[in-house]
Amino acid sequence: EVTIKANLIFANGSTQTAEFKGTFEKATSEAYAYADTLKKDNGEYTVDVADKGYTLNIKFAG
């Protein structure tokens, strides 16, 4: 089991951190699915992958 950390960075400057656990593939998939649910209210997003994929910096356009 691994932990994927998602740093969520919103257009208004606020930030939030979420963690997803499971296999690497499952946790990564859940992180992207979570970002997709936030897209409606926060706009499109870009992802900067860090720490060999264990950290995702997800920035929303607003």
Rank of each mutant, 00 (worst) to 15 (best):
D36N: 12
T3C: 05
N12Y: 15
E25C: 04
F20T: 01
S29Y: 15
N12A: 06
T37G: 10
E19R: 06
S14N: 13
K40N: 10
T28P: 02
A35K: 00
N7C: 04
K52M: 15
V47E: 01
Y34S: 02
A11C: 03
D48T: 10
A11W: 05
D41A: 14
Y54I: 10
T55W: 06
D41V: 15
K52N: 09
N57W: 08
A33I: 14
K40A: 06
F24E: 07
K5G: 05
T23P: 07
E30N: 14
G43C: 02
D51N: 09
F60A: 00
F10G: 02
F24Y: 10
E25G: 10
D36V: 14
T55I: 15
N7V: 12
D36E: 10
F24A: 07
K21V: 10
F10S: 04
Y32E: 03
A31Y: 01
I58A: 01
T3E: 15
Y34D: 01
F20M: 02
G53N: 05
T37I: 08
V2R: 08
N7I: 04
T3R: 12
L38P: 00
N7G: 03
E1N: 13
I4P: 00
E30A: 14
E19A: 12
S14H: 11
K5T: 07
T28V: 14
D48A: 14
Y34G: 01
E25A: 08
A35N: 01
Y54R: 07
A27I: 03
N7S: 06
Y32Q: 11
K40Q: 11
G53R: 02
A11Y: 11
L38Y: 14
E30C: 03
S14T: 05
E1Y: 06
D48M: 09
N42P: 01
A61V: 14
G62Y: 08
K52W: 07
G22T: 02
S29F: 10
T3N: 06
Q16A: 12
S29H: 13
S14P: 07
K52G: 13
K40W: 05
G43F: 03
K21H: 06
A18I: 09
F24I: 13
Y32I: 11
A11D: 14
F20Q: 00
F24H: 11
T55M: 14
E19V: 12
N57R: 10
N7A: 06
T23D: 15
N12Q: 08
G62E: 06
D51L: 06
E25H: 12
A33D: 08
T37L: 04
D36Y: 05
G62T: 15
D51T: 03
D51W: 02
F10E: 02
G13Q: 15
T23V: 15
T28W: 12
G53I: 02
T28E: 08
N42T: 05
E30R: 13
Q16D: 06
A11P: 09
F20R: 01
A27G: 05
A50D: 10
S29D: 12
S29P: 02
L56G: 00
T17D: 09
A6M: 12
E19T: 11
E19Q: 11
T3F: 13
K21P: 05
L8V: 13
G53H: 04
K5H: 11
Y54A: 05
N42M: 11
L56E: 00
A18N: 13
E19G: 04
